[in-house]
Amino acid sequence: MKMMKNMRKEPLNDTQLLMSITIGIFIVMYLAAIVFLGGGFLHAQQIFDMLNDNASLIIVSCALTIVMIGGGIDISVGAVTSLVVMSCVLYLNSGGNIIVSILLAIGIGLGFGLVHGFLISYLEIQPFIVTLAGMFFARGMTTILSVNPQKVDHEAFAKLRDMKIEIPFLGYTAKNGNFVPARMELGVVVALVCLIFIFVLLKYIRLGRNFYAMGGNQQSALMLGINVKRTRFLSYILSGLLSGISGYVFMMHTGAGNATNAAGMEMNAIASSIIGGTLLTGGVGNVIGTFFGTLTLTTIKKIVVSSGLNDPWWQSITTGGMLCFFIMLQSVVLGKRAKKKNS
């Protein structure tokens, strides 16, 4: 209470608090990695690698953040990403055109969003079931398109794929004395643009605030004159659209389509959102937090690998442990807050 009087600004709200914790832990963890594991973690390229590898994960995590803020869930994002990759690869290989392939990706994403949104908002079916069906459908369609891995064989696309943005001043000198500039893939730019767009949307655009209102208390949102059905509909449309974009970014990174692409991505995306401070109950969360959530998740995996624990099962166990830690932390922090308010 004393603090509040001294500060001109308001105390952190739930979203800001959870986000700050995540950013703090990420920084501490990264610094610890530099100190104890040194080497690779010192180079800026390490961060860029993480971004390059996870651009599409960042995008779908943002999609989930939007849906989760609105009090829903979308577990189809990974499968839709995979379907988009496969469709676009096959289309490009059949001699398609780049622009059309992008439109195809966006179209598939929007299509899923539309159907999900309609079923959830206007027919009031549980989002888990609808997006589960969406996930089944997308996975099934992917294998129907092709069971075998497909590599893109398309000149224009190859150019797009190999296009890298070089940032010389963040580079480093390799052991053999050559200077290697930091490299960032085009997909990362797309991801960052999406991130900024959604940040602005959630913070400064009416629709974004309506997502928060809807997730905070749906009944209230309705009474406040928000068209809850349309708002929810739009949240799933956005999620679908972002899954489509994510698919294209994924393809730009791998340059190939495979039925098992992006397997388990939805759970990684949910985990990123949660670590970033989004509550599944809705109304609390922020894409900046989600961004750091993704980075935290990736960093922990990198640290595990760098520590010499190469068995793949170590990664998932540490991820699980990490998740457990954050979930408990949030529960304790928010619980303490609620208590404080009541007293």
Partner: peptide
């Protein structure tokens, strides 16, 4: 019953 959103300002 209060019909506002507690998570907003």
């Amino acid at each position: 019953e209060i019909t506002l959103c507690p998570n907003l300002t």
